[in-house]
Design a protein around this nucleic acid. Structure first.
Length: 853
RNA sequence: GCGAGAGUGGCGGAAUUGGUAGACGCGCCAGAUUUAGGAUCUGGUGUCUUGCGGCGUGGGGGUUCGAGUCCCCCCUCUCGCACCA
């Protein structure tokens, strides 16, 4: 056996071995319990980063562990391949998005394979593959049939220069992230998925996902934003019109002294009187300049304008002025709000600013609010006043009573409102899944017939980044005959939001080659749901909510049989690193710094704060270079050892060195002892130091098993293996009988490490004389017998402070333990001359002697 | 403002059920080996007194024989949501 550990050779050797033997290939097997482990698939940017290394290292530990435990483990990998970077590459470098994407996939696959991850590569696919698009388009057609996909006009962020819609995160301070021109609101016809139909179910299930982190569930609940309230109709004075408002506080209806509408409200123009025309117009222009982001930022000054019209408070009969207000949102509730200044801070401020009346209708016990002297709105509970027949009711009870009263008179009704909006999926992009619809002048929007799927993207496109979607200008693509009437018609040129692809890929992994539909129900029923999903917290809402929604849709379309896609979710923390900055040259890459000085000018660098690795701050480590230097096993080991998975991981070169040293230490432990243990006898009863090592070995198996299984505390699992290795170094084998114990300890280290550093484990396992691979004998099992000791050491406290330690027989009763504790010389010093009040014995732990005087 | 989480040595982090705080690793110190450095091996390393011992888990209070852990108040930080009617 080589004295020197050389990761390069070993890692290549075993990666080839795994591939040749198709070690990680799986098929459905009814006789075996399945385990579906999935990490969020990557966008093929071309280069993996440390976040990927961490994500996939964590996943691989679980996959390999479960496989060793005898599960039939599905562990697939693929590519979230549609998206803007491919189009940007096309615009900047003239390379076709498909070529760019598939080349990136090829090079990223090699990089992932270098990490030695146990994927079933047979199942790999990219979401831009025509076969994937085909089934996604079919799912859309089925949703269209069910009314779950529909078209409507909606306001979007529009860059007039780029002629395209921008996602909220692509708008920076009101300007386009690419051309830096002002973004506008624009009404566009867009396709939507009716996620709101599933709002209640999505919400209810957040209470039934115990395997998810509470904060992710909280974010989703918050996002769905269900609130109970009342819809109330306010008649407009001298008009047949009625304005519908939504409120969660029908109990304050008597306090509504004015009304405010969103500037976009459809009635806004009708309600504006001739005299207010100019003022309203000026206000609308001001609002138009405030983009969507700023409108909802909360920092915007509250502004409004009187329309000149009045409506009638249905309960007081009073005429109340109607305002337009910049902070009222058209897409929440009804776009109109009854304003109760006494009990809502926003309208309190608004009323003070525009000198509108304030009417107190809720009075808490022991206080008397007067509109003139109130400093802020009272939003707490209380008893109704100034509310006619409802006076004296507790406000919670009044909510019910007033709602019932309105319902009776047909002026309002109880409703439920959601913050969640339907999911707009249209994108004016080239590099996405074409939406399979045809527009005909006679027949309207006609679904593409199933047999014509997939609608493929035309390859001969010119991507310039200007003039809108290239598909909208591509005549051959657009020109099509109507499937219904045969007349010339036009193809839909929008493509899907890329979140659509990632909403069902996990199910497709169960049957990646299935040709008769999106999903092979039998295979999907075997593998789904995903038992453990692992990925970044940044997907807490969008991706995870859309995937849950899609799963329910697919269930209702009869394509699969589960309610939820992911039973357990692990959200791993970010990979962070210290930033370094030269006063002359700005941010510096770690390799540009030597001895704390800038490599360019020699000036001492300033150490910045530790933050998420990013190219802009140059605090990045390239996984490829890391593997070149230390090997994949070291890279994996450090990613797992430096922090528990949910926490942020601070990258640290010296920590990597430490892991590399540990691997070298294991290597030497085996190579130095190989001769001694090569042909040793079976393990017999042992005593002394050998018994201790034997016990330590079994303690470690127990600890590592418990740390990995369910707890995902890989850092402590590794720490305990390090302890066992330290014990091996401290063990001096004497004579024949010690060799089997040493062998057991070394074999255990190698087997326990298999999920973490698989190449090293495989190599050492082979060196130890086994031919079938380190996973073959399964996960090591500890023996309870081996954990037992004849004596244990107990801590003796006097008044809660440690004053001594005593050794007692394991089975000693409390009396014996107490006697031993009291006999300890140091303990006696502290109890001498004092009265013993109480002695507490905690079996196996400690003795506490309580004294006084 | 609302919601979630965190605060422990010089650093990353342990302490799973209220029971020896600081496992393991990094760094640092010493010794062995070596011509030297590196690598390796061994030992030490919270802090104050360097005796016994005192203090110590963001701060203050409480429950308990015993609190990093439970309860109350406060401070700081991170993340998410936020004019949501």
């Amino acid at each position: 056996m080589e004295k020197q550990y050389s990761p390069d050779q070993i890692e290549q050797k075993w990666q080839q071995e795994w591939e040749q033997r198709q070690r990680f290939r799986v098929v459905e097997d009814a006789g075996k319990e399945k385990f579906y482990l999935l990490e969020m698939f990557p966008y093929p940017s071309g280069r993996i980063h440390m976040g990927h290394v961490r994500n996939y290292a964590i996943g691989d530990v679980v996959a390999r562990y479960k496989r060793m435990r005898g599960y039939n483990v599905l562990h697939p990998m693929g590519w979230d391949a549609f998206g803007m970077p491919a189009e940007n590459a096309a615009i900047e470098h003239g390379i076709h998005p498909a070529k760019w994407t598939y080349e990136n996939i090829a090079s990223m696959r090699v990089q992932l394979q270098r990490l030695g991850l146990s994927y079933d590569w047979q199942r790999e696919f990219a979401t831009c593959d025509p076969e994937y698009s085909r089934w996604e388009q079919l799912i859309f057609l089925k949703m269209l049939e069910q009314g779950l996909a529909y078209k409507k006009s909606s306001s979007v962020n529009w860059c007039p220069d780029c002629q395209t819609v921008l996602a909220n995160e692509q708008v920076e301070e009101g300007c386009c992230w690419r051309c830096h021109n002002q973004v506008e609101g624009k009404e566009l016809e867009q396709w939507f998925f009716k996620i709101t139909d599933y709002a209640d179910e999505l919400l209810d299930w957040t209470e039934r996902l115990p395997g998810w982190p509470e904060r992710v569930l909280a974010m989703q609940r918050n996002w769905i934003g269900k609130s109970y309230g009342c819809e109330i109709e306010f008649p407009v004075v001298a008009s047949e019109q009625k304005i519908k408002v939504f409120t969660t506080r029908p109990d304050t209806l008597f306090g509504a002294t004015f009304m405010s509408l969103a500037p976009e409200h459809p009635l806004a123009a009708d309600l504006t009187t001739a005299g207010q025309q100019a003022e309203v117009q000026a206000f609308l222009e001001t609002v138009a300049k405030q983009d969507k982001i700023a409108r909802t930022s909360g920092e915007l000054e509250k502004q409004g304008v009187f329309t000149g019209s009045y409506s009638i408070n249905p309960l007081t009969g009073q005429q109340i002025p109607i305002f337009l207000a910049n902070f009222v949102l058209m897409d929440y509730g009804t776009g109109a709000v009854m304003a109760v200044p006494a009990h809502d801070q926003r309208y309190f401020e608004f009323a003070r600013k525009y000198q509108l009346p304030i009417r107190v209708v809720i009075q808490p016990e022991g206080e008397t609010f007067l509109p003139e002297t109130m400093l802020e709105a009272w939003v707490g509970p209380g008893v109704l006043v100034n509310s006619g027949r409802f006076d004296g009711l507790a406000n919670e009870a009044a909510k019910e009573k007033i709602a019932a009263y309105l319902d009776e008179r047909n002026e309002g009704r109880k409703t439920v409102n959601y913050r969640l909006r339907d999911w707009g999926v249209s994108r004016q992009r080239y590099w996405g899944t074409p939406i399979p619809v045809i527009y005909c002048d006679c027949c309207g929007a006609v679904p593409v017939p199933e047999q014509d799927l997939p609608i493929l993207l035309p390859e001969d496109v010119e991507l310039t980044g200007e003039g809108g979607s290239p598909l909208a200008r591509h005549q051959q693509f657009l020109a099509v005959d109507c499937p219904t009437c045969g007349n010339p018609a036009r193809r839909e040129s929008d493509t899907f939001d890329t979140f659509v692809e990632s909403s069902w890929y996990f199910a497709r992994y169960a049957c990646p080659d299935f040709e008769n539909g999106p999903l092979d129900r039998e295979a999907v029923n075997y593998w789904m749901p995903v038992d453990q999903y692992i990925g970044g917290i940044e997907h807490a809402v969008m991706h995870l909510l859309y995937a849950r929604f899609f799963t329910k849709v697919l269930r209702d379309l009869g394509m699969l049989d589960v309610d939820e896609p992911f039973t357990n979710l692990l959200t791993q923390g970010m990979v962070c690193m210290e930033t370094q900055r030269c006063p002359e040259h700005g941010w510096l890459y770690p390799e540009q710094v030597s001895d704390g000085k800038c490599g360019e000018c020699g000036i001492a660098v300033e150490l910045g704060r530790t933050e998420k690795m990013s190219k802009s701050k140059k605090n990045v480590v390239d996984p490829n270079q890391l593997i070149d230097l230390y090997g994949a096993d070291t890279a994996r080991l450090f990613s797992l050892f430096a922090a528990p998975p949910e926490k942020d991981l601070e990258w640290n070169e010296q920590g990597v060195e430490g892991c590399s040293r540990f691997i070298g230490r294991i290597w030497r432990a085996v190579s130095d002892n190989l001769q001694l243990i090569e042909n040793c006898a079976e393990l017999q009863a042992v005593e002394g130091a050998a018994a201790e090592l034997h016990r330590k070995t079994h303690q470690t198996i127990k600890k590592v098993t418990e740390d990995i299984d369910g707890r995902f505390h890989f850092n402590t699992a590794i720490a305990s293996i390090m302890e066992l290795v330290n014990a091996i170094y401290g063990f001096k084998a004497e004579g024949e009988s010690d060799a089997p114990v040493l062998r057991e300890a070394l074999e255990t280290v190698v087997r326990l490490l298999a999920p973490f550093v698989p190449h090293l484990s495989e190599e050492l396992w082979e060196q130890l004389g086994y031919a079938d691979g380190v996973e073959a004998p399964g996960w090591p099992q500890w023996h309870d017998d081996a954990l037992k000791t004849s004596e244990i050491t107990l801590v003796v406290q006097v008044n809660g402070k440690v004053r001594g330690k005593v050794s007692v027989a394991t089975e000693a009763d409390n009396q014996a333990v107490e006697a031993a504790a009291l006999a300890d010389p140091n303990v006696q010093r502290f109890i001498d001359g004092k009265q013993i009040r109480k002695v507490i014995c905690v079996p196996g732990r400690l003795v506490n002697i309580v004294v006084s005087g």
